[in-house]
C-alpha cells in the first residue's frame, strides 16, 4: 500500500499534476511540502548528490532506523532514540517533526517543530520522493541548498584567519555553546565553512530573520565572517 502511495505521489510530481487518484490516499501535498522544506535545508540536504551538513542528508530516510549513518555524529539523544527503536516511518518522522525535542530529548536539531498535521504530511510527501525505499527514484530533481544570497566569488574565496576567528568567536560563545550543545540556541560547531559564510551574509543583508543575528552579523566585515567560518568549521 505504501509503495502504491509513493508511486502515486511521484507520478503526480513528475507530471506536474496536483491531484490524487481516487484509489490512492496521498499523505500530503508535495509541492507545498517542497516550499516547507526551505525551513529544513539550511541544515539538511535532500536530492541528488546530497551530503551531510549540519544535519545528516535525508535521501532514503523512510523506514530507516534513527541514527544509522556511521559518518555522521548524532546527539546522544538520537543514539538513545535508536536504541529505543525509533524508526523513520511516517509516524516516527511526523512525531519528530511535530516536536523534535519532546520526541527525542537532547536532539541537536534546532527546529521548533510543525504543530499542524497537514504541514507535516505535506513535508513528508515531498521528502518521500527522495527515498529509495520503497521506490528508487534516480531522476529526482536536485534540491541542493539554494543560496540564500548572491555572494561574489571574491567574498566566497576569502581565506579566513582562524586565530582572528577564535577571538571573534568569543562573542558567539556567550550564546552558542563551544561544546556544540544545543539548549534553545543552535549549535554552530563544525558547520561547513561555505554554508557558515552564506548564512552570516544572509543575516547581514537581513535576508535571514533574527534580530540578534542580524545585528551581530551586521557589523562583521567579509574577512571577519571568513575568519569565524574557518574557526568554527575546524572546531570539534
Amino acid at each position: 500500500m505504501r509503495i502504491a502511495v509513493a508511486i502515486m505521489i511521484l507520478w503526480a510530481v513528475l507530471t506536474g499534476a496536483a491531484f490524487a487518484e481516487e484509489t490512492a490516499t496521498a499523505i500530503g501535498d508535495p509541492e507545498r511540502g517542497q516550499k516547507m522544506f526551505k525551513k529544513c535545508k539550511s541544515c539538511h540536504q535532500l536530492g541528488e548528490g546530497a551530503k551531510h551538513k549540519v544535519g545528516p542528508h535525508l535521501n532514503g530516510i523512510f523506514f530507516r532506523p534513527a541514527a544509522t549513518f556511521d559518518d555522521f555524529k548524532y546527539s546522544k539523544g538520537m543514539y538513545a532514540a535508536r536504541e529505543a527503536g525509533l524508526v523513520w516511518d511516517i509516524d516516527g518522522l511526523s512525531r519528530f517533526i511535530e516536536d523534535p525535542r519532546k520526541t527525542v530529548p537532547g536532539t541537536k536539531m534546532s527546529f521548533h517543530g510543525l504543530a499542524k498535521e497537514k504541514d507535516r504530511h505535506d513535508l513528508l510527501a515531498f521528502m518521500r520522493i527522495y527515498s529509495d525505499n520503497p521506490q528508487n527514484i534516480p531522476e529526482a530533481a536536485p534540491t541542493a541548498i539554494k543560496v540564500e544570497v548572491e555572494l561574489s566569488p571574491e567574498i566566497l574565496a576569502i581565506v579566513g584567519d582562524p586565530e582572528y576567528g577564535e577571538y571573534l568567536a568569543t562573542e558567539c560563545t556567550t550564546c552558542h555553546q563551544s561544546s556544540g550543545d544545543f539548549d534553545g540556541i543552535p549549535g554552530i560547531v563544525g558547520w561547513p565553512q561555505d554554508e557558515f559564510v552564506i548564512a552570516m551574509h544572509a543575516y547581514k543583508l537581513k535576508k535571514r530573520d533574527h534580530p540578534v543575528m542580524q545585528m551581530m552579523a551586521g557589523r562583521l566585515a567579509d574577512d571577519e565572517i571568513a575568519a569565524l567560518a574557518a574557526y568554527f568549521g575546524d572546531l570539534n
Binding site: 521548533h112 560563545t173 556567550t174 550564546c175 552558542h176 555553546q177 563551544s178 561544546s179 550543545d181 544545543f182 539548549d183 534553545g184 540556541i185 540578534v212
Partner: peptide
C-alpha cells in the same frame, strides 16, 4: 505568542551558553 515563546526559549539557551562560557 509564538515569537515570544521562541524568545523565552532562546533566553534559556543563552543561560546555558553564558554559564558554560
Amino acid at each position: 505568542g509564538e515569537l515570544r515563546k521562541q524568545t523565552y526559549e532562546e533566553s534559556v539557551g543563552w543561560y546555558a551558553g553564558i554559564t558554560s562560557d
